[in-house]
């Protein structure tokens, strides 16, 4: 027998004793007391387990997702496949147990730890993320998305000063805001058209610098201009941007959610947005006035965008800046 080199032997022994981390089969269970036992619970657990197992199989092999055995809505399936083209990911744990959260349209599962395996070399976000899965009342998967990058933001949103009902509403808002961001990345003009109310007000701030000749020479005057657009104008313009750019990348952070003092279903959402297309990029602050009076189809009545320079001098728009009938 040819003696093995010591270093090779060391590696072999360690490799044999280490746990293989690239597990393919993933099990999902709901936390105790968060959903009634029964056929629906079992069906959803099995469906999520199958989805997570497929994600791990495809993520570990670098291949495509095969969702044919998963009970998932067509739109959610398309969106997950579009997401997968941008970035693969794998589940960190072979057994995942999460609370079943009731939301307006069905159920939600949050906090499934995943590791991103980006295909885009310019990916600059954290590799450690969490997966959120939405399900209809009948247990069909209606959405799969990596949760907000900045989990600090999430806990701030969900920590509600307004009680339990407000916490549920905030969870709902978080889901909608996560979806809202995806609509831009996916260039989903249909969904954006639906989410803005027909009479939505779109306000865009810009800084205009003018050269003026004065007694002491030339000086630069800085004024702020606000452009107001209708929903139709905004959606038309956005359609053109989507057509001209192969890639849109929108990131949100520093989100805050404020409930209207007198109208419990009206929320002001402020967030910092980074916008990147093939030819243009900017950063600024978004304010969205959301109306959750129809919880199945919440609408945005106001969208304002202000560049950083304006926010420093004028402040961000808030609920107080708008009259809500």
């Amino acid at each position: 027998m040819v003696p093995m080199k010591p270093i090779k032997l060391l590696i072999l022994i360690l490799a044999m004793l280490c746990r293989f981390n690239g597990m393919a089969e993933v099990t999902f269970k709901f936390a105790g007391g968060t959903i009634e036992a029964g056929a629906l619970k079992t069906r959803m657990e099995n469906n999520i387990s199958a989805l997570l197992s497929e994600i791990n199989r495809a993520g570990n092999s670098g291949g495509t997702l095969n969702l044919s055995a998963i009970n998932i809505e067509a739109e959610a399936k398309n969106r997950l496949i579009a997401l997968w083209e941008d970035s693969h990911f794998v589940c960190d744990k072979s057994t995942n147990i999460s609370k079943c959260l009731n939301d307006v349209q069905g159920f939600q599962v949050r906090a499934i730890p995943i590791t991103m395996k980006p295909t885009d070399p310019s990916f600059d976000q954290s590799l450690n993320r969490e997966l959120t899965i939405s399900l209809s009342k009948s247990g069909v998967i209606t959405g799969v998305r990596p949760a907000w990058e900045l989990q600090e933001d999430v806990s701030r949103i969900l920590f509600s000063p307004g009680g339990v009902a407000d916490t549920r509403q905030r969870r709902e808002i978080l889901k909608w805001v996560e979806d809202f961001r995806c609509y831009y990345n996916e260039k989903n003009i249909k969904a954006l058209n639906q989410i803005y109310s027909d009479d939505a007000l779109i306000i865009t701030g810009s800084v205009v610098r003018q050269r003026r000749n004065g007694d002491n020479g030339v000086r630069l005057d800085q004024t702020v201009n606000y452009t107001v657009q209708s929903k139709a104008q905004y959606i038309n313009k956005l359609s053109g941007i989507f057509q001209r750019n192969s890639r849109i990348k929108v990131e949100f952070d520093h989100i805050s959610v404020v409930m209207h003092g007198a109208k419990p279903n009206i929320y002001g959402v402020t967030l910092h947005q980074k916008w990147q297309t093939n030819t243009y990029s900017d950063e600024g602050w978004l304010f969205l006035l959301w109306d959750f009076n129809d919880p199945e189809a919440p609408q945005i009545h106001v969208r304002t965008w202000q560049p950083e320079q304006i926010v420093a001098s004028d402040g961000v728009f808030t609920l107080d800046d708008f009259f809500i009938p």
Partner: peptide, 30 residues
């Protein structure tokens, strides 16, 4: 987590203090 007589809050984070604080808020909300 599987025990229905327990309530829990949980978080995953690269920073253990952040993970603790967020788990605490999760527990509080729940």
């Amino acid at each position: 987590k599987l025990n229905e007589n327990m309530v829990f809050g949980e978080d995953f984070n690269e920073d253990k203090d952040i993970a603790y604080n967020k788990a605490l808020l999760d527990l509080l909300n729940y």
